[in-house]
Write a protein that binds this DNA or RNA. Structure first.
Lengths: 330, 330
DNA sequence: GCTTGCCATGTGAACGCAAACAATTACACT
DNA sequence: AGTGTAATTGTTTGCGTTCACATGGCAAGC
């Protein structure tokens, strides 16, 4: 910076002012400085700036299962929004979701000097852990269920699950079976609740719940059991990947979809439209979730009050061919 | 740090020595310092350290299409490896792949002070852009094709494509059609080359190439045209998502797979085993790719020579039910 | 007993920048 | 011309580390 100042014939402070867009710099002076900067290909040193301003311009993201479509999309949305807000993004991904790992990841990010952390870790224990240490750095949760003590942005899983269940009921199905996500996840819980409540309100029996781990494989395994149950005519899968596995199992068992069994998923991953048959599902816009979360985080970092700490984004049902009227009603 | 020094009754320099594991610190002294650190919950300031050491302990990742399974998995692998190597990871994702965007992303990272950059940007133009500016910071490319001028780690697309094509030929198919990825991608080119070369070596006719953009939708569109062509009995898709779309189109057109047409994909995403029918494909271990790339980058940063600058990871064929003998041979 | 040399620790700078404050200049208005 | 105010620029300080060097102590060797 001293070199730039010398070349431009001003003090380093004036260079600093130009760099930071401070007022009261004469245009001519600014131009000289700018020219010198270009001439020397000068780059401000972010470490020095961070040291004195105590602001790193960096936000942290704790992410889990980041190879899945949902988390990856949220991360992408976060990065986009962070960039427009002028922040860098540092990632720490989790291998497991216990409180210790989360603690560790957040510590790691904090040691790096991030000004805030977004957590894509939709497990109940994780959110608890995060809440406990959010004292030192602002934290927001992304895509988690509704019970978090920290500010968060999520899709309205309850409403989505209700819509899905309702849809199948309206099609004339006596009840709707459910393939849930793994225990401990906030999404799992909310979708389960929405499903159960809708059934109860409709006076429909609440059948036993099948449980998976979000993977197609687990959906397939649930599907094998479902296919063997002649009672089942409608299934709500807690995500599209499991629905894919379910579809596969049903196909192998010679149970036509939607002829004998209707299937609805959740997420609307880009592939869902090309399943066999194309999957009716509940769309959540993960990218949007990430963006909104980041906006919230930026507000927190800036010290704006937590006016709208809990943001719920409405999901949207996407009708395709995997759902149809109950048998005998066609 | 001064507080810690005072509490421990030593100088700040001794605290620094303890922190950095420097030799010549008496165990008793070390313990006192450690105790003081714990007592005060002291955290070293990374900005100050970066300022004086000129090392940020941060590596950058430029990523494109990071919501796709491949890039997301590579990012994940990179993050893992970076953590074990003691580095933080900062991400910059690209919206478009022109040289300007890449330039911008790398600049952004460099301004942040990263010590090296891994580029998940498998487009020819991107790699060119990166090569040009790799002077200031070490750069490695991940998952790109083989023609890059910067060090890189990739799956051996040529071999993979050859194996896929060979497999179908061996099954008795007269030739193999190809649904390629978008132009300009290194993977696209290498898989295309492998396919074409294998056909030529086998003396099989080289049919017209269908082109997609990696998405299931584009595979579906190619599939519509392929289904209408009675000549086609075997198709090699440049990735699994397009294969899914193709499968869908074939199914709709009443062309059984593998009865009438065999289909093979590339990638082996976790869902491929649950397609209808389960997809034969060529597996690439994206996570491993990311890890290897990061190791290479760390070596570069450390200044170790470029002995093994180009790492090719062998892909592995996964046989499932979407491929079978040619008609008349069953 | 007095050097020699290694250990253990302390002292003073410097890293590159922005904040606080000081100084100078320009301009309007009396 | 004289005063006041705002605009523009400069000077100094310190952010929290590590680095280079200085210092004191203690053991071994003569």
């Amino acid at each position: 910076m001293a070199d730039v100042a010398k070349l431009a014939g001003v003090s380093h402070q004036t260079v600093s002012r130009v760099l930071n867009g401070a007022p009261h710099v004469r245009p001519g002076t600014r131009d000289k400085v700018l020219a010198a900067i270009r001439e020397l290909d000068y780059r401000p040193n972010s470490a020095a700036r961070a040291l004195v301003t105590r602001r790193s311009q960096t936000l942290g993201v704790v992410s889990f299962a980041s190879t899945l479509y949902g988390p990856a999309s949220m991360l992408d949305g976060i990065e986009q929004a962070a960039r427009s807000a002028g922040y860098f993004v540092s990632v720490a991904s989790l291998r497991s979701l216990d409180a210790r790992s989360v603690q560790e990841a957040v510590d790691r990010l904090r040691d790096q000097g991030v000004e805030g952390v977004a957590v894509i870790a939709p497990q109940i224990s994780a959110v608890g852990a995060v809440a406990r240490l959010s004292s030192s750095v602002p934290v927001v949760a992304v895509g988690s269920g509704s019970r978090s003590r920290v500010p968060m942005v999520a899709v309205d899983n309850l409403t989505g699950a209700t819509a899905a269940t309702r849809h199948l009921l309206d099609l004339g199905h006596g009840t709707v079976h459910h393939v849930a996500g793994p225990a401990g996840w906030l999404e799992t819980q909310d979708r389960l609740d929405g499903w159960r409540r809708t059934l109860e309100e409709a006076g429909a029996p609440v059948p036993q719940v099948y449980s998976g781990d979000w993977s197609a494989r687990s959906g397939y395994e649930a599907g094998l059991r479902i296919a063997a149950d002649p009672e089942v005519t409608a299934v709500f899968c807690a995500n599209d990947h499991m629905a894919l596995g379910l579809l596969r199992a049903l196909h192998e068992a010679g149970r036509p979809v939607p002829g004998e069994i209707s299937v609805i998923g959740f997420d609307d991953i880009p592939e869902s439209a090309y399943f066999t048959p194309p999957l009716t599902t509940v769309r959540q816009d993960f990218g949007e979730l990430g963006r909104r979360a980041l906006e919230l985080l930026v507000e927190e970092v800036a010290g704006v009050g937590h006016a709208r700490s809990h943001v719920l984004v409405a999901p949207e049902m996407v009708l395709r061919r995997s759902t149809g009227p109950a048998r005998g009603l066609a």
